[in-house]
Computed example of a mutant assay.
Amino acid sequence: MSEKSKRLMMIYSRLKSGPVTIEMLSNWASKNAVQISARSFYRDLYDLENSVIPANEKLVVSVGEKNRKTWKIEYINDEKPLTEFDINSYVLFQNFMPLSIISSRSSSLGKIIGLFYQKYSKSQFEHFVNVAKSQIKASHFYEGSVFTNYHKILDDCIWSIQNKREMQLIEVNYDYTSISSHVEFPQMFFPIQILYHRGVVHVSGFIKENNQLLILGLEQIEKYKLTNDSFDNSSFVQNLDVELSKRFGITQNIDNEIYDIEIEFTERTGNFVSKQFWNDSQEFEKLENKNFMMKMTCGINRELIGWIFHWMSNAKVIKPEILKELVVEKYTEMVNLYEQDAGIVSNNSFRPL
């Protein structure tokens, strides 16, 4: 077998394992000591399609964001028909996606609906859609409702993450996540992950200058610039998971300490809270008085304090003392607003220095 034939069979085996881009093929070739240029890869993919791939398979190329091509092998006459359950699953996904995604990706969702029309009779699909409109709803409470160039910001962040490219964050508006007061913009930024949290789509990454974790809601980004400066994201991906595990939610902690936290909930509220996910370390214990004790190990931040107030008198901090003091302090501030009829001013007392 010639060297080219061996190479074609190796590329074919790689395609069988999943979709690839030229960049992915180049990385694969480097790891497997295959000497080949990007131009040769294009020729090999053409030859594969016309000589190697069996009759029951086909090589499909799709063009995605930033004209990035992806090749994959599809099987002919091996498709399982979509069922009513499958169509209902799509309808659920469409209705329960964040409002920001639904609004900014309406054209893509329209294309998917068009594919359903081609696959099934129009009347059948319309029946399911009409059912969804009347019986499946999302309140979109706590989600953004005003979007300016949202799809462009999201697509640019995805492109930067996928291609491991630095972003320059030039202007950032307001503060979702208690960013340290010493962080000033513009900043060079290593984007790592798109993160959905409490109705907001965020981009998570690290400040280039000091490797500090920075999480921003996409609506916060007023002005930015893409770059072609690449970075190695291998260590940052792991660091992101480690740093987030130290937080309650995604808000920056007030200090670098990790605390053993205990919060007692009344029976009914505890029964609800214990069935939800809040933190990787959470544990619940039912007490003799039928209340619930929640235990977790994480930092203290604005998000945790606000969450405790969310349950009003159905939650009580047991430990640590610093958390009890912060809750009482914030409660006293709020009571004084009414007792003294004081004016309100912007106040993020949990913002770290």
Rank of each mutant, 00 (worst) to 15 (best):
E3K: 05
S5L: 13
R7Y: 09
M10S: 00
S13A: 08
S17I: 13
S17V: 14
A29H: 03
S30M: 10
R39A: 12
F41T: 12
Y42N: 06
Y46A: 08
N50A: 04
S51Q: 11
V52N: 06
A55V: 09
N56W: 04
L59Y: 03
S62T: 10
R68T: 12
D86I: 01
V91K: 05
I102V: 11
S104P: 01
S104C: 06
K119W: 05
K119Q: 09
S123K: 13
E126V: 03
K137G: 00
Y142D: 11
V146Q: 12
V146K: 10
V146E: 08
V146N: 07
K152V: 10
K152G: 04
E166W: 12
N173F: 14
I179D: 07
S180L: 05
V201I: 13
V203N: 01
S204P: 01
G205I: 02
K208H: 10
K208S: 12
N210V: 07
I215P: 05
I215N: 14
L216G: 05
G217P: 12
Q220S: 07
K223F: 08
K225C: 11
L226C: 01
T227E: 01
Q238W: 04
E243W: 11
R247K: 15
R247A: 07
N253R: 12
R268V: 02
V273Q: 12
F277S: 01
D280A: 10
L287R: 10
N289T: 03
M294L: 04
L304F: 02
H310G: 13
M312G: 08
K316A: 08
V328F: 00
E329P: 02
Y331I: 08
T332R: 15
E333H: 14
N336P: 04
L337R: 01
L337T: 02
E339M: 05
G343F: 15
N347Q: 10
S349A: 15
F350I: 09
